[in-house]
Write a protein that binds this DNA or RNA. Structure first.
Lengths: 209, 209
DNA sequence: GGAAAAATTAATCATTTGATTAAAATATTT
DNA sequence: AAATATTTTAATCAAATGATTAATTTTTCC
């Protein structure tokens, strides 16, 4: 029987693989092509399942999308909390942590930034739930330390640059590879090198003035 | 009579405004929503014209899109050529020029980077025509100067960071504004401030080691 | 002014796409 | 094993969408 929108009754020992297959396929296709360009048939095909099963397990394309989006936001924002709220580490150490963790994550999930920024543009409403709270950044130790170090500069200016250095290459990847004739292994190696380069550059920036 | 796909016959003194209205509307809608999420009806409505006129003046959604894409690539890559091939300016001066010109352009066309990178992902083929030649960057004076300054470092590492600092904030804009509660005027002012900040940061990075 | 050409419109078509349904297949329970 | 519940499938629907057509209006040119 079809799931209602009220209570989701699950059998005791279900073969979860079908539902999980759909989610996995949805992750892949949504993240690669975005909501608008993704057809439910793409997902069904990617999962190797009948189209109707998408609506059977999840109510609609939108609901399925929301689940994927929530997961991805978690991955994208999840790990910086512990770093930027750590009272015991220096600014420089925080930068190192953010850089290396972000680059590791992006090597595994290169489509995430584009996915999140794209949907944030097209459908700001859907982000409202998954987005970090307003004061998540503002109240962080990281921002406090930045203000102390550079009292006369907006701390978000540095943050934007640091994130730009980390994330932007992954966004530019298709264009960059085409223009510079860079193959995947070489690109990966470059990104790995940036784990050392970016913190060094940030230190130089923070020392200024 | 309808235009054929062979020769486009134009009257001598046509009122070009209809064709131009369509192109202008197509620029707006395509750039904001991307190819897949744009419906031809959106463009017709934006232009205040009958839907059939799109196919009358341009053959198809794809053809219209190609025109817009070509234009945008021109805007995005067009102005850096004269700067990076200038034999008479220093590395630092080139950085200043790139930063200020890019930020000016992005203030006027904030949707461009996302548009180009998005379509580069979804439809790499369509870029092939409009993309700069393989050696456009490699043979530039800018890259040569970077190699001289930092012989033991891939010059594209610096380039990626510089572009990241410039462009990334415009990509993150919707997310950033939501998280930090930054209104448009404040954001604009921040971007203006980066015209001075980024060159200073780049100088610090180039002085390293 | 009138014929020819060009531009515009409303109606319609064919395909795509998200969703639904009823029947069939499979699993679970008693 | 029968009965019941759950899962899966094939067929279909309704709306959306890119495109076309035939008729109408407007412009051009003699």
């Amino acid at each position: 029987m079809k799931n209602t929108n009220t209570v989701k009754k699950k059998p005791d020992t279900p073969d979860r693989s079908t539902e999980e297959k759909i989610k996995e396929a949805a992750r892949t296709v949504f993240t690669r092509k975005g909501f608008a360009a993704t057809r439910t048939r793409d997902i069904a095909e990617e999962a190797g399942l009948n189209l109707a099963l998408l609506n059977y397990y999840f109510r609609s394309k939108e609901k399925l999308f929301e689940i994927v989006m929530l997961e991805k936001m978690q991955v994208f924002f999840g790990f910086i909390g512990p770093i930027i709220y750590d009272e015991s580490t220096s600014l420089e150490l925080k930068v190192e942590g953010i850089v290396s963790q972000y680059i590791d994550m992006l090597q595994d999930n290169p489509d995430i930034p584009f996915f999140i920024m794209g949907e944030a543009r097209n459908n700001p409403a859907i982000l409202a739930n998954a987005m970090p709270r307003k004061d998540f950044l503002r109240n962080s130790i990281f921002i406090k330390q930045l203000k102390e170090r550079k009292p006369d500069q907006d701390p978000y200016q540095f943050l934007l640059s640091m994130l730009g250095m980390i994330i932007f290459p992954f966004l530019l990847k298709p264009v960059f590879q085409k223009i510079t004739d860079t193959e995947d292994p070489k690109f990966k190696q470059m990104m790995k090198a940036r784990r050392e380069l970016i913190p060094a550059w940030c230190r130089a920036i923070l020392k200024l003035k």
